[in-house]
Design a protein around this nucleic acid. Structure first.
Length: 598
RNA sequence: GCGGGUGUAGCUCAGUCGGUUAGAGCGUCGGCCUGUCACGCCGAAGGUCGCGGGUUCGAGCCCCGUCACUCGCGCCA
């Protein structure tokens, strides 16, 4: 007989009654009735009830063990009598009568429960992550993660992509996020950087003629986290294709992404492949106030500035006269809502740092609120007719400089949608946001900057760079958005050296700068580079959506906390003086702050 | 870097207007219990009310500072 087990804890059924078996696992729960004792024995696969009574030498041993101790049970499979069958358990028709027990590893008193899903403080969960990972939900989420990644690999392979591993110790990329640096021992004063993404390597693979690359790629960025952004490291489904237009990237990836979503969506619907809406960036900002709109929210923002060029409502007239805009978010069927509902929204907007969120109420056709009063009921009715709003619909107003108003309107759209329960939770709504601006105006430095990706191809190519106002140039650049989360981002790359040089010139960088900062890639483009493009999808975020988790820590094995500490292993930690010497480093403590070590 | 929220037993939380010895449930420990499956019953231990300062006759409660966790802004090409 196998020293540890003949079956897993999910395997035994009525068919095994009478067999002598061996099971190993953790003591999930223990119910001690004195003369008879039950143990729910748990392994990765499931639970089996173990029973011991005074006839069994196992009774005394099990009585003395704490939960989460690891044991091996040898015993006989018994059918449960009808009244004691547990329909909630896969193995609930049987139990194993323990004849002998071996303690493989006794557990101390636990710092946190395993057989219980009660919320627990993050720092304890992270410090005892091995216990946390035993808990049902997290254990299941991690297995979903494993399955999603395997599914992605399979689908990518099926459409002709090959998985390549690119270097982890690489060169610092001067654009973008803050790098994690690794000091060089051999080269004093020089540093490797961990890749923020395999961007340049995957483009080099295209130049090297490999045609279709993908990788479940670890990426490293030293930026502050969010609930949907892990500190330090994360994974991307990174891919690149040669000789493609952006439409081909979308057409190739829609079935892959849709397929993976559908495979794990449970009873939620997923936007069909080939039907992902393609929304230009400018339109997204106008209609949704965001470049990552949640399309489950039916509310659409409208620009009503033209209605306020002349208005009894002086504030809006002044804003529009000064080049600003007035945008509105409908609040359908809010005639029963109290004044507090509307005032609370305004308070919320002010708390978020905006000037305020105006509103008009409407009940049975009657307008209410100061904006309606001053603007006048006839003009309000005109505006309502244009927007197609009914006699019980309210309206929120976001006014100011265009970018601010759009942002406030976007935030208000989300909040109104949630408050009114308008979000359709039963689906994954996917869309592409396309035609991102290539450049943007940097108000602080009074100069033009790259808006997103300096490697992407400007629409119109070098002619556009030469002849057009830079701020009107679009890029062949796109994001994939699901339920308000940006889940992928990509572009057709700029593979032409002279176009690259021109593109960087506009943000004030010379040819020499390009050669210095992107030397490898720039050099590669001198020797025959195929037109190429691709994208990178946030694996963690996709898994979070599919698991219905609100936080990336719920789908990650050993995540760092918000201060980028890994509490289980204790990272980061101070280095030995000798290691610092080898690396030619000396630590300079920040003034006024003592670094904490544990 | 900035802002919001939270901080009371190992955990989840209650704690009235600032007023007696700070409570409950879960967990832990001890005892009892031969059919439970979130077993039950009895008992016990367990508290620098995050920390420091202040106001007050008196502070878990009010004020100031600070720390931790968390959510957001900046940031994330």
């Amino acid at each position: 007989m196998h020293p540890y087990r003949t079956h897993t804890c999910a395997q035994l059924s009525a068919e095994n009654v009478g067999e002598t078996v061996r099971l190993s696992g953790w003591i999930h729960r223990k119910r001690d009735h004195g003369g008879v004792l039950f143990v729910d024995l748990r392994d990765h696969y499931g639970l089996t009830q173990i029973v011991a009574d005074s006839d069994s030498p196992a009774l005394a041993v099990l009585e003395g063990l704490r939960v989460e101790s690891v044991i091996t049970i040898e015993g006989t499979v018994k059918a449960r009598v009808a009244e004691t069958v547990n329909a909630n358990l896969a193995t609930g028709a049987i139990e194993v009568f323990a004849r002998g027990v071996t303690v493989q590893s006794a557990a101390e008193e636990l710092p946190m429960p395993v057989a219980d899903e009660q919320p627990y403080p993050e720092d304890i969960r992270l410090k005892y992550r091995f216990l946390d990972l035993r808990r049902e939900t997290l254990h299941r989420n991690i297995m979903t993660r494993v399955a999603v990644i395997a599914d992605m690999r399979q689908r990518m392979g099926a459409v002709g992509f090959n998985e390549f591993s690119t270097p982890i110790l690489t060169a610092s990329s001067p654009e973008g996020a803050r790098d994690f640096l690794v000091p060089s021992r051999i080269h004093a004063g020089k540093f490797y950087a961990l890749p923020q993404a395999p961007q340049q390597y995957k483009q080099l693979l295209m130049v090297a003629g490999f045609d279709r690359y993908f990788q479940i790629a670890p990426c490293f960025r030293d930026e502050d986290p969010r609930a949907d952004r892990l500190p330090g490291e994360f994974y991307q489904l990174d891919l690149e294709m040669s000789f493609v237009t952006q439409e081909e990237v979308w057409e190739t990836m829609e079935p892959v992404i849709q397929g993976t979503f559908a495979a794990f969506a449970g009873d939620k619907s997923v936007t069909p492949a080939g039907k992902f809406p393609r929304i230009p960036y400018d339109e997204a900002i106008l209609k949704y106030g965001s470049d990552k709109p949640d399309l489950r929210n039916p509310l659409i923002i409208s620009d009503v500035s033209s209605h306020f060029t002349q208005s009894g409502f002086g504030l809006f007239e002044k804003i529009v006269g000064g080049g600003g805009v007035v945008r509105v978010i409908p609040a359908p069927a809010t005639h029963e809502k109290s004044r507090k509902f509307f005032d609370d929204m305004n308070d919320w907007a002010r708390k978020e740092g905006y000037a305020g969120l105006g509103y008009v109420t409407r009940k049975g056709g009657e307008f209410g609120g100061p904006i309606a009063k001053n603007h006048g009921p006839e003009r309000m009715a005109e505006l309502y007719a244009e927007l197609g709003l009914g006699e019980n619909d309210g309206l929120f107003f976001a006014a100011g400089k265009e970018a601010d108003a759009a942002k406030l309107a976007g935030a208000a759209r989300i909040r109104v949608g949630e408050e009114l329960g308008l979000i359709d939770e039963s689906r994954f709504a996917l869309c592409w946001i396309v035609d991102f601006p290539f450049y943007e105006w940097n108000e602080d430095e009074k100069k033009v900057d790259f808006s997103h990706n300096p490697f992407s191809m400007p629409q119109g190519g070098i002619d556009a760079l030469n002849g057009q106002d830079p701020l009107t140039i679009k890029a062949y650049q796109y994001d994939l958005v699901c339920n308000g989360y940006e889940i992928a981002s990509g572009s057709i790359r700029n593979h032409m050296p002279e176009t690259m040089v021109k593109a960087f010139e506009i943000v004030g960088l010379s040819k020499a700068d390009v050669e210095e900062r992107f030397g490898g890639m720039y050099r590669a483009f001198q020797y025959g580079a195929p037109p190429h493009g691709g994208m990178a999808a946030g694996v963690d975020r996709i898994i979070m959506l599919l698991c219905g988790a609100k936080n990336l820590r719920e789908i990650s094995l050993f995540p760092m906390n918000q201060r980028a500490e890994e509490l289980l292993m204790g990272a980061p930690s101070p280095a030995e003086p000798r290691a610092l010497r080898d690396l030619h480093l000396r630590v300079v403590e920040p003034v006024g702050k003592v670094s904490q070590t544990s």
